[in-house]
Nucleic acid binder design. Structure first.
Length: 266
DNA sequence: ATGGTAGTCAAACTA
């Protein structure tokens, strides 16, 4: 099974790039974030025509929004209302074969890395705490019956030193601050999640999945960050065969600022 | 330290 996660930054604007991704990589499951489309306007027929009969979308007007496109049938689960904000940052399905799949879009957190001064950063930290509590409780209850689960998404945190272009220069930049990394690591521990991409390509190899729009030339100094992740439970990690970050996508015409991350599971 | 770009949806917000 080939699974992809991609922050597409508007599904309607970039549906042709989605088609290109599908033609090039032929994924079985694609998890999208920032689809930026309310449910009534979701381009359902166009997405089905790409070869994905099973589609779960959860959007809102203007911002956020996540979707799961699949060739494998699934059961839709209720998303949790994280931080009770009624936003669209989580899709949850169980794929046939008893594989639980979560698609998350964790809040970016604004610019100031201080929860007292910046409510968006406070929101991000609270979201992470709720994730930890959720997966800790789930593990006790044996939520995924056979322990087969996958969690993907734009987690908006680059946890390792080699997940950013300069660890030192980004220590107080939201996405790489110690408090965020600590809380993301707690989520990982609570769910017994294994980072599938780093299992294949360990540090110190640098890996990035996002390059800012705010630079004249994104290739110039390769100032990226790895914000997009694929995590799997130990039972699945034994079956991970391949993982890639499709850096070339950042060079496509009218690109998203994020590229797709792909993992192959046997 | 500053300001740089992109998307939604039509002014201001988010990233």
């Amino acid at each position: 099974m080939r699974i992809a996660t991609w922050n597409i930054n508007s599904l309607r604007l970039r549906i042709d790039l989605l088609r290109r991704l599908v033609q090039q990589e032929g994924c079985d499951v694609i998890c999208l974030q920032e689809i930026k489309v309310e449910d009534g306007l979701f381009p359902l027929e166009a997405v089905k025509a790409l070869g994905y009969p099973y589609i779960r979308f959860h959007g809102m007007k203007g911002y956020n929004g996540v979707a799961i496109l699949s060739k494998i049938p699934f059961t839709v689960m209720d998303p949790k209302d994280w931080c009770l904000k009624g936003d669209a940052r989580h899709a949850h399905v169980v794929l046939d074969g008893d594989v639980e799949l979560h698609n998350f879009y964790i809040p970016a957190g604004g610019d100031i890395p201080d929860p007292e001064e910046n409510v968006k950063f406070a929101h991000k930290l609270q979201f992470l705490d709720e994730l930890t509590a959720h997966f800790a409780a789930g593990a006790k209850a044996g939520a995924s019956a056979k322990g087969k689960a996958i969690m993907v998404g734009d987690l908006n945190i680059a946890p390792l030193e080699d997940d950013v272009w300069s660890h030192k220069q980004l220590l107080s930049v939201v996405s790489h601050t110690p408090i965020e990394v600590e809380k993301l690591t707690a989520v990982q521990k609570a769910g017994k999640w294994v980072d599938a991409v780093r299992q294949i390509t360990p540090a110190p190899t640098k890996l990035f999945s996002w390059w800012s729009y705010r630079s004249a030339d994104w290739t110039r100094n390769d100032r990226g960050r790895r914000l997009d992740h694929v995590w799997v439970t130990p039972a699945i990690s034994k079956r991970v065969r391949h993982a890639t970050i499709l850096k070339d996508m950042r060079g496509w015409t009218q690109p998203s600022d994020h590229v797709a991350v792909i993992v192959d599971i046997d």
